[in-house]
Amino acid sequence: MNTTFSTVLGLMLKDIYNLKKSLKIFIIFILFYGGFALLSQQSSLVVALMTTISIMLPVSAFSYDHACHWTDYALTLPVSRRQMITARYAFSCISAVGCHLILIPVLFIASRMGSDDAMETMAAIPVTLGVIFLILAVSNGAIYRFGPERGRFVLFAVCMIPVGVALIATRILPLSVFQSIRQWFVTQTFFGFLSLTTALLLGSALIVAVGLIALVISWWMSCRLMERQEF
C-alpha cells in the first residue's frame, strides 16, 4: 500500500493545483500591498494581508472540494477518511507557516528602509501564527461539521468577535487604562524573576503551542465526525 505520507502529499498537491489561480492573485496582492507597506512604512498592513491569506487558503480549498464533490470521489480511492483530514490540516498549517515565512524578508527590508515598527512586528510573528492556528482549528472543524457555506459564518464570528470586543473596549475605556496596562507590562518582573523580553518570548511560544494543541484536538474531532458521516 502507499504510505500515509505519500497519500497526504498527493492530496495536498491536489489543493495546490486547485488553488493555483488564487495563489497567483494572492502573489499580486502581496507584491502590491507589500510595496505599499514598505513605502508608507506601515508594516502591520502586510501582516494583516498575510494573516487573511493564511486563513482564506484552506477555506478556498474546502469550497473547491465542495463544488466538485471531491470527498465522494476521494473515498472511492484507496484513501482513508483520516488521511483526507490529515492532508487538509497539514495544508492549513503549511500555508500559514509559508505565509509567515514570506513576512520575514519583507519586514527586514522594511526595517532597513527605516520603518520603526518593522522589527517589533517581526517579533510578533509567532503570536500571529499561534492565533492563526487557533482560528484554523475552529474554522476547519466547523467546516467539517457544517460544510463550507455555514462553516464560513463560524470563521467570520471567530475573527470578528475579538475585533469587535477590542473596538468596543477602545470606545468605552479611557486611554489611560491602556497606558497603565502597558506600563504594568513594561515594569513587571514576571513570576518574580523573568524580564519582559523573556516573558514575551515564553508567551509567544505558549500561544503557538496552544494553537498547535487546538489544531490536534480539532483534527481528532474532525476524524471522529468524518468516520460517522455518509456521502
Binding site: Y17, N18, C68, W70, Y73, T76
Partner: peptide, 14 residues
Amino acid sequence: IGSVLDQGFFYEEL
C-alpha cells in the same frame, strides 16, 4: 476497485 460515479470528481481546472 475502480469506480465512476455520476457525481464527484476532480475540480474542472485540472
